[in-house]
């Protein structure tokens, strides 16, 4: 088995993260850096130092908004959002209880809806997510408001060829 760094680079399958020279341009432009427990360039340093457990348990990997600002500005084309996606997958595979549980639950609700209907009826999905997680009563009111305005239709068309959708989910499922 390779080192943590090797595993990560292999899964990124692009620019190796050792190309980072820690100029911190990524962190200065990151809209989420202030609320992350580890800043974008620190995440790179930690992979290099083999601090796998701390990273897979971090809030930072779920708070990244995937805005792609860092990779666009990086002088060395280090793809931090891709790195973070890799760490997210590793964290889920390792069964770590995420610090930002509701972010992960949101992704699960979203993909569950796609798997069942091929498309997402957003307001319906959001309201059911909010009720399931018992959060943000105000947002349920926003949901109701959208319903009154005719944005939330209970019968929005779904994908007809559901066999194709199920095949996609089956063939990409993690064992």
């Amino acid at each position: 088995m390779g080192s943590f760094l090797d595993d990560v680079n292999q899964r990124i399958d692009g620019v190796d993260i050792q190309n980072c020279y820690h100029c911190q341009k990524c962190t200065s432009g990151c809209p989420m850096a202030q609320v992350m427990d580890f800043k974008p360039n620190e995440i790179i340093r930690m992979v290099q130092a083999g601090r796998k457990d701390a990273l897979l348990r971090s809030s930072a990997i779920w708070l990244c908004a995937s805005c792609e600002t860092c990779v666009t500005r990086c002088p060395n084309a280090v793809d931090i959002p891709r790195l973070i996606d890799v760490l997210r997958e590793m964290s889920l595979e390792a069964g770590v209880v995420p610090q930002e549980r509701e972010v992960v639950q949101f992704h699960e609700s979203f993909l569950g809806t796609v798997k069942r209907g091929g498309r997402v009826n957003e307001p319906l999905m959001i309201v059911s997510f909010k009720i399931k997680t018992g959060t943000y009563f105000n947002d349920v009111i926003v949901g109701l408001k959208m319903f009154m305005k005719g944005k939330l239709s209970l019968f929005s068309p779904r994908t007809k060829n559901m066999q194709a959708i199920r095949r996609i989910f089956r063939s990409t499922a993690k064992s």
Binding site: R88, E89, V114, A164, F169
Partner: peptide
């Protein structure tokens, strides 16, 4: 008969799904 692109949720949790 188009289907959903997977949005942020797919690429955050499953790279192959986010391409498929």
């Amino acid at each position: 008969d188009w289907s959903c692109c997977g949005a942020t949720s797919a690429h955050s949790t499953n790279f192959e799904l986010s391409v498929a």
